[in-house]
Design a binder for these strands. Sequence first.
DNA 1: CGGAAACTTGAAACCTTTCAAGAGTCGTGG
DNA 2: CCACGACTCTTGAAAGGTTTCAAGTTTCCG
Lengths: 237, 237
Amino acid sequence: MVKDILYDLKISCSHCNLGDMCIPRGLSQQGVNTLSGVVKQKLILHQDDFIYRQGDDFKGIFAIQSGMAKLITDDLTGNEHILSILLPGELLGFDGLNDTHSCSAIALNTVHFCELPKDRIDDLCRQVPNLTRELFRHSSDILKESQARVINTKLSGEQKMAAFLLDLSKRLKQRGFSESEFRLPLTRNEIGNHLGLAIETVSRLLKQLQQKKVVAIQQKEVQILDFPELKRIAVDD
Amino acid sequence: MVKDILYDLKISCSHCNLGDMCIPRGLSQQGVNTLSGVVKQKLILHQDDFIYRQGDDFKGIFAIQSGMAKLITDDLTGNEHILSILLPGELLGFDGLNDTHSCSAIALNTVHFCELPKDRIDDLCRQVPNLTRELFRHSSDILKESQARVINTKLSGEQKMAAFLLDLSKRLKQRGFSESEFRLPLTRNEIGNHLGLAIETVSRLLKQLQQKKVVAIQQKEVQILDFPELKRIAVDD
DNA sequence: CGGAAACTTGAAACCTTTCAAGAGTCGTGG
DNA sequence: CCACGACTCTTGAAAGGTTTCAAGTTTCCG
């Protein structure tokens, strides 16, 4: 039965291997249990599906269990901007905390995720010690990421690309994936959009990095061959 | 006596004219009173003084009562980046919510400000209904500002400058100041740093806007002469 | 008043974009 | 299973905007 399958798939926060970087970080075992009872787990979406949409009322805080997503916002002139790429174990939804979501979150491939629904947050914060604190921490983490991206925009094209790849690699490693080989489910267009570069420039920069034997790229498969050099490029050039 | 003067200067949150955009926003009268008892009020700093420093343990949330400040961060290579300009009635400190401040906040001129000290926040959130919610809202507001700046970095120099002036003008207006005439206590260098432009480019862009009779600038005094045109430049060009 | 700092201006260099065209990849259908 | 078409990606050349370098001017302040 479908129901049974879903039941089998259900994993509580205490058994989820993302615990230490997800919301449970910093909570007591009991707190995690309380959280588990409230969080909607193992939700699934496919490529191009929306987790939430810009303009939606605040829905809640989400955690990606597997797959990747992008956070985008449409500006006044209708142009789309990719604000961030979200990896397994990362949280999203904080852009809605002041009542309406200013971004859309879209699956880049098949995504499993959890939801801490808006309506339960206040209760839960009262019940679970440190949860409020922890949510503030996460929201501050996310603010810092956004600030880091402002700084990145001042770099040269090559530096942006190097820093982007290194950032992904680092975050993947932190989450138990290979830091040197991964699939980047983005088109050149999306990479360019995210980094503030024309698609042609993305193409040329990637070629350049390959010629230097710093990375190897086959379609969307990325391999980092020379970390020291990639780091040097990201900061020196 | 100095003490008497300080006493006279002391203004509770309920009597502060910034209430509706500051922390009290959304709190009951009683909540505001409780808040007032905890907030350190009418602190004063002068140009170039630090409100807090990058690397400091989280100190608390601050509100600017008068004057302006800048939020900066030093990157790995020691370069300073101006992340935002803070006006009266605006909040800062959210970059420290995950334990250490990732930015320094520096007074651009004489600044009066209030402090909600870190140690009291948890208590206060338990005592004052909606305060947690309200802090989340503010933190989300600030995240959105940061995201908006990421988008701004994709604009042309002239657009950046126009958007920057319009943004300041709008925020000043919201806070009861003139939207068309104000003093911008930043050097060309700081403007350039903030917008990601070379100082010479800032100079040329400002000249250009003056030649078009869109703004008039005398040293640090800014006058906006033609809002429609400035808006057109910010989005169209 | 004099010196330091901030700002402006011009010309050349540089990086990125734009335009244009060709090559490669993927999925569908005959 | 190959062919076709759509889409994505790559490549080259020219154009464009911003930076850099260099020098001069203005402003500020002791």
